[in-house]
Design a protein around this nucleic acid. Structure first.
Lengths: 267, 267
DNA sequence: TAGTGGTCTAGACCACACG
DNA sequence: GTGTGGTCTAGACCACTAT
């Protein structure tokens, strides 16, 4: 690369044409500088998003990708390193690099960090209450980046830990993405919700933000969770994002934290 | 390094004698294999822990460290990369690498993730209630890795956001480490608690774990927080760790989440 | 034995900060 | 300009997995 004669300025970005980084000298003076490995990272992300490599599948080896993008293996490595750190890819020494998935991993705990008081990670079972299609409220529309009154799907469910009702979830999804999602289909599917979204609707949840509060249980909620009205509950408002930081889920959860706690690590 | 004639096996670890990695060929077949850069990371961590480089100070350049440890710059780089990812070091392009500190950064929010409903990060002021020395209960002793009845310091304080009382904290510290910590000294110090611990007691908080629950305010707590008894509060039980994963603080907090929320990012 | 990711090296050059 | 971290390359070898 260093001997590339076409060594004019490389105002970045422009070099991402899909099948090889074009005018890509290591770097060049420019107000908006983006290193090569970041461009490679973008190209790989595109392939992930487009479904060229699906969750659980292996992606081409570093050597192959280096040849494909016409960069050194080290540059591909750095791109993959970051994608692995972002939980988009999983490296396995001796085997290859794989697209991360909600299906196999122990990715369960990653999005529901509820532990028993003894620190154990108990399994839970879901009990579906309803699944309706309706029009987005202004609030939900804003959070899902939709227009008000756009179609959305609303799911309500309970989670039981050791038979105890512990979590009530209300989940809003963009109707356009989740066509054909019915209560029946939900109840047929075995495994985590996010695994289903990924497998059945091609939408992979990448990251989420949560707003956590303590609230008093309202009568209807208290009823479902089998606690007295006014009982202190953990309120968890989550927005989940997929590729490109596009929001694809709003979730409002109420957790009974008697015997269980929400685990968080600050580092 | 590859031409090192002393090319016997390197059962790792042994090569860390303080002033250069001794028998350190890139690697060697061995059941407990640890790469060179991990050993370098350990040596750097030792220098941080021993106070050779203090919080806020600059550490030697990558080239200098490479010479000191007799490895390539790339290997030092990888060690520093991880330490920076762990928030022990901070890299600044063109200037150097610095020891992280609770004094300057915006490290405030890192350990108190309370935001106003509008998402703004409001400043807060602390109002000290008391600072006593007493003997550790069995529970506190266990969490601080002390023997029961060992001396501990207990601090109680309130935090006000925009003048509103929002947080009540009870903080337990090992008495042996925090000698001479008095309410007067606490009240004199300007800035975050962790900054004081770092500056005045040489103890730097590296990471923490939190257990979060919703609880009903008990009368004494409710009084201090100016809410009715039974009011739903966020209960946050934190254990903080310093170098070597040694626990050095147990903190029990009660948060009023009216107008504020605890922000958490899942990724 | 072959292929993959993981480590280590050495050298070149770029971007940034500061005198 | 000088020094720092940041990027990129090329090549060697190690560790792990599968065949």
């Amino acid at each position: 690369m260093n001997s590339n004669p076409a060594n004019t300025t490389n105002p970045n970005g422009s070099g991402a044409t899909g099948e090889g980084v074009s005018a890509a000298v290591p770097a060049a003076a420019s107000p908006t500088f983006s290193p090569l490995y970041q461009q490679i990272k973008g190209l790989i992300t595109q392939s992930l998003e487009s479904g060229e490599w699906k969750p659980g599948e292996i992606i081409p080896s570093e050597v192959e990708l280096a040849a494909r993008y016409k960069v050194s293996q080290g540059t591909v490595r750095k791109a993959i390193d970051e994608l692995a750190a972002d939980n988009l890819l999983v490296r396995r020494q001796g085997k290859g690099t794989f697209v991360a998935t909600h299906n196999e991993d122990r990715a369960q705990f990653r999005f529901l960090r509820l532990l028993a008081d003894d620190g154990a990670e108990h399994p839970h079972v879901s009990r579906l209450l309803e699944c309706r299609r309706l029009r987005a409220s202004a609030d939900i529309a804003r959070q899902l980046d939709l227009k008000p009154a756009d179609p959305v799907v609303l799911i309500k469910r309970l989670l039981q830990f050791d038979g105890e009702v512990t979590v009530l979830d209300e989940i809003w999804l963009p109707g356009a993405v989740f066509r054909g999602l019915t209560l029946e289909r939900l109840s047929e599917y075995k495994g985590p919700l996010y695994a289903m979204f990924e497998t059945e609707f091609g939408t992979r949840m990448i990251r989420a933000t949560e707003k956590i509060r303590a609230v008093a249980a309202e009568p209807t909620v208290a009823d479902l969770l089998r606690v007295p009205a006014g009982f202190p509950l953990l309120s968890v408002e989550r927005v989940s994002y997929t590729y490109g930081d596009r929001p694809v889920e709003v979730r409002r959860g109420w957790y009974v934290t008697t015997g269980y706690y929400y685990q968080n690590d600050l580092s």
